[in-house]
């Protein structure tokens, strides 16, 4: 199983992780169109935290014992047994925001529609998530963890 690890000591606070996360979750997959044309603007799922000289990017940690999965009333938030990822099914989400309240990392947000939540999906379909692939300083790395 793969997980994203933030290396605080090399995070330069540029925010390119947020930019490329947004692009990856846009319709056009084009950076200029995603930001300047798509309405509502797609939402990035990674958040840059800066308190100089400390900074790092936070996205869903895909917790082993995920509070959001336990708290979800509709079964929209599920743990994928094979990949260990916490996956959100927007079809089932009823927008009660319980997951937002229980997430210890603040990694879940209301999506642009205001009706369901949005969180890191590990860029399903990509070998390397967009935030990791586009971090210019190796501050986000993909590591293999034991299931």
């Amino acid at each position: 199983m793969k997980r994203i690890v933030a290396k605080e000591e090399f995070c330069i606070g540029c925010g390119l992780c947020e930019v490329y996360c947004t692009v990856q979750h846009s319709k056009s997959k084009d950076v200029i169109k995603a930001y300047n044309r798509e309405n509502p603007r797609p939402l990035g799922r990674v958040r840059l935290e800066v308190n100089k000289p400390v900074s790092f990017a936070v996205q869903c940690r895909h917790c082993e014992d995920a509070p959001c999965v336990t708290a979800c009333l509709s079964g929209a938030m599920k743990k994928d047994e094979s990949t260990g990822l916490v996956i959100h099914d927007a079809e089932k989400c009823m927008g009660c925001w319980t997951c937002i309240m229980v997430c210890p990392y603040g990694a879940i947000k209301m999506d642009a529609s205001g009706k369901v939540v949005s969180k890191c999906d590990f860029c399903s379909g990509l070998d390397v998530p967009a935030c990791v692939a586009n971090c210019p300083n190796g501050a986000l790395v993909l590591i293999e963890v034991k299931p």
């Binding site: 330069i12 606070g13 540029c14 925010g15 390119l16 947020e18 930019v19 950076v31 200029i32 995603a34 930001y35 300047n36």
Partner: peptide
């Protein structure tokens, strides 16, 4: 202006 997405990377760098 057509290209700028106001991501503020230039500001913070």
């Amino acid at each position: 202006a057509e290209r700028c997405i106001r991501c503020k990377v230039c500001v913070n760098q």
